[in-house]
Simulated assay, not measured.
Amino acid sequence: MTDLTDTPDAADTGPDDDTWDALHARAYAAFDQGELHTASALFGELAQHAPEVPFLHYMRGLAHKYLRDWPASLQHNLRAQSLSAEPDQGTAWNAGIAATALGDWAQARSQWAQCGITLPDGDGPIEHDFGIISVRLNPWAEGETVFARRIDVVRARLLNVPLPESGHRLFDIVLHDGAKTGVRALDDGTVPVFNALQILQRSDHRTYVAFIRCPSADDLDQLQQAELPGIGYVEDWTASIVSLCLRCSYGVAHAQDDGDSDGAHDQGAASNDDWQVERNLGIGAQGKAAVERLLTNWVAAGPGRRVDAIECPACEERAPQDGTVWWRGPGDDDAQGDDEEA
Results as ranks from 00 to 15, higher is better:
residue 125 P to A: 14
residue 123 D to V: 07
residue 165 E to I: 07
residue 138 N to G: 13
residue 148 A to W: 02
residue 170 L to W: 08
residue 174 V to C: 13
residue 126 I to M: 02
residue 122 G to W: 04
residue 146 V to E: 04
residue 120 P to G: 10
residue 175 L to F: 07
residue 166 S to E: 10
residue 122 G to V: 03
residue 120 P to N: 11
residue 169 R to K: 13
residue 175 L to K: 07
residue 132 I to H: 03
residue 150 R to W: 01
residue 136 R to L: 10
residue 130 F to H: 08
residue 116 G to D: 09
residue 119 L to K: 03
residue 181 T to A: 11
residue 117 I to M: 10
residue 128 H to F: 14
residue 128 H to N: 15
residue 122 G to T: 01
residue 127 E to T: 06
residue 126 I to L: 04
residue 113 A to P: 09
residue 180 K to D: 11
residue 150 R to H: 06
residue 181 T to K: 09
residue 153 V to K: 03
residue 136 R to W: 07
residue 176 H to Q: 13
residue 167 G to H: 04
residue 113 A to T: 15
residue 138 N to C: 14
residue 126 I to P: 00
residue 140 W to G: 12
residue 117 I to R: 06
residue 131 G to D: 10
residue 173 I to L: 06
residue 113 A to Q: 10
residue 178 G to P: 05
residue 164 P to N: 06
residue 157 R to N: 05
residue 170 L to N: 01
residue 127 E to G: 07
residue 155 R to L: 09
residue 133 I to M: 02
residue 129 D to G: 07
residue 155 R to T: 00
residue 163 L to F: 12
residue 174 V to Q: 08
residue 158 L to Q: 03
residue 172 D to M: 07
residue 121 D to W: 00
residue 153 V to L: 02
residue 142 E to W: 09
residue 114 Q to V: 03
residue 150 R to V: 14
residue 157 R to Q: 11
residue 134 S to I: 00
residue 130 F to L: 12
residue 169 R to E: 01
residue 152 D to L: 08
residue 141 A to W: 08
residue 133 I to P: 02
residue 182 G to C: 09
residue 119 L to Q: 03
residue 156 A to S: 13
residue 115 C to G: 13
residue 135 V to G: 00
residue 160 N to L: 03
residue 158 L to I: 14
residue 161 V to F: 01
residue 160 N to D: 14
residue 181 T to C: 15
residue 142 E to A: 15
residue 165 E to Q: 14
residue 173 I to V: 15
residue 146 V to T: 04
residue 182 G to P: 01
residue 113 A to Y: 04
residue 140 W to V: 14
residue 169 R to V: 07
residue 174 V to L: 13
residue 169 R to Q: 12
residue 149 R to T: 12
residue 131 G to P: 06
residue 138 N to F: 04
residue 124 G to A: 09
residue 127 E to C: 06
residue 158 L to G: 03
residue 174 V to T: 02
residue 145 T to L: 03
residue 130 F to V: 13
residue 177 D to V: 11
residue 178 G to V: 03
residue 142 E to H: 11
residue 135 V to K: 01
residue 128 H to T: 14
residue 175 L to G: 03
residue 144 E to R: 07
residue 159 L to I: 04
residue 134 S to R: 08
residue 149 R to I: 14
residue 168 H to E: 06
residue 142 E to Y: 11
residue 168 H to L: 06
residue 167 G to P: 03
residue 118 T to K: 11
residue 168 H to C: 12
residue 133 I to L: 08
residue 123 D to N: 14
residue 126 I to F: 02
residue 153 V to S: 04
residue 113 A to D: 15
residue 160 N to S: 13
residue 115 C to Y: 01
residue 172 D to S: 02
residue 124 G to I: 01
residue 154 V to K: 15
residue 172 D to T: 10
residue 164 P to V: 01
residue 154 V to Q: 15
residue 155 R to F: 04
residue 125 P to G: 12
residue 134 S to V: 01
residue 115 C to L: 10
residue 140 W to E: 10
residue 132 I to K: 05
residue 128 H to G: 12
residue 118 T to V: 15
residue 162 P to D: 00
residue 157 R to Y: 00
residue 162 P to V: 05
residue 121 D to M: 08
residue 180 K to M: 15
residue 178 G to F: 11
residue 136 R to Y: 05
residue 114 Q to R: 15
residue 141 A to C: 09
residue 123 D to T: 10
residue 166 S to C: 13
residue 136 R to Q: 12
residue 148 A to N: 02
residue 167 G to N: 06
residue 151 I to A: 01
residue 158 L to N: 02
